[in-house]
Design a protein around this nucleic acid. Structure first.
Length: 325
DNA sequence: AAGACGGGGTG
DNA sequence: CACCCAGTCTT
């Protein structure tokens, strides 16, 4: 959960998650839907899919326990360089330094390194350079101390150098370059897409599609729809996309709402239309599964944030009309 | 070595 | 708005 997500954001998710799945066998036995539901809103859903996969793998191959050597840890789904080092050092005491976003910043400043921190090789270089030092302390304490210094003292903006235990030997501090280091190249501008989604009603239920595992938002349920072509009328897009993805013919009604949402590498304006089924049997043509769901049943389905915003508008309207909810 | 991959918190 | 976050996986 802590991969690319701040501790304060994670805490409530962690509490709920660990209450539902107190140990590895409990997680392994759960349905992916239930796991994703507890991850809903946290983002980077591959973390949840990998954690679940790893739990099942541990039960099947390692008696439900984590393997105790670094190479075996590294092979587990979701265990990259950081998590392998964190678990290896904190759980098993191996002297392997962790390099997270905090450590990267601390030592770019400390050693005056001006390499773009987007460069992947910088992480391995720092891990190598830190290895001689970790032997001087309990690895668990060393790693957590370095991350903590980054989070609380050597902050991105306005670092608290006067409270820093590394100040005396810090190149950035000595040379007055704490504001210039670390160096980070500008991110490319993100495209903005117009998306239309259909809430397709049939007999008090609407259609949801479960996105394929290897897609963005894989395993989550979404309203069918897709990207508008330039200048294309929304109803045209929607009829085309819904037919291509589910095989249904629909009647497009009015928009329930418009939602702005930002992802890591693009932005969307999502317009959600009330639609009615006309003909055809729903098929999972581009998804793993399609299902007719009522407003009463939807609570157990994990949805991405943008679809949740849509759902609220749907609820409000249908409640007002005294329909199906 | 690049991109893809979510969402929230902060100034 | 922009930047950041206890990164990982696929090309």
């Amino acid at each position: 959960m802590l991969q690319q997500t701040q501790v304060d954001t994670v805490i409530p998710y962690f509490e709920r998650f660990i209450r539902a799945f107190p140990d590895v066998p409990a997680l392994a036995a759960a349905d992916q839907q239930a796991v994703l539901k507890l991850w809903e809103g946290l983002g980077y859903y591959s973390r949840a899919r990998n954690l679940h996969k790893t739990a099942q793998l541990l039960v099947a191959q390692h008696d439900g326990e984590l393997p105790g050597d670094i190479e075996a840890l590294r092979r587990l789904p979701g265990f990259g360089p950081y998590t392998t080092a964190a678990v290896g050092s904190i759980a098993f005491g191996y002297p392997v330094p962790v390099v997270d976003g905090n450590v990267l910043r601390v030592f770019c400043r400390f050693w005056g390194i001006a390499t773009d921190i987007r460069q992947p090789r910088l992480r391995t270089e720092l891990q190598t350079r830190l290895t001689p030092f970790i032997a001087a302390a309990p690895p668990s304490a060393f790693n957590q101390a370095m991350m903590e210094v980054g989070a609380l003292v050597c902050r991105p903006q306005a670092p608290r150098c006067n409270a820093c235990p590394l100040q005396a030997d810090c190149v950035a501090f000595q040379t007055g370059r704490t504001a210039e280091l670390p160096v980070k190249s500008a991110r490319k501008p993100v495209p903005h897409h117009q998306i239309v989604a259909g809430i397709v009603w049939k007999d008090e239920k609407f259609l949801l599609a479960r996105r394929r595992q290897d897609q963005m938002l894989g395993g989550l349920w979404v309203f069918p729809g897709g990207k508008s072509k330039p200048g294309e009328a929304p109803a045209t897009t929607l009829r085309r996309e819904v037919h291509a993805k589910t095989g249904l013919r629909i009647r497009v009604g009015f928009p329930y709402c418009r939602v702005e949402h930002g992802y890591t590498h693009f932005k969307i304006t999502l317009t959600a239309y009330r639609c009615e089924w006309r003909s055809g049997e729903a098929k999972a043509l581009t998804s793993d599964e399609v299902r007719w769901v009522s407003l009463q049943e939807i609570g157990t389905y994990p949805l991405p944030k943008a679809n949740h915003k849509v759902l609220e508008a749907v609820r409000d309207y249908e409640r007002m009309q005294g329909n199906a909810g």
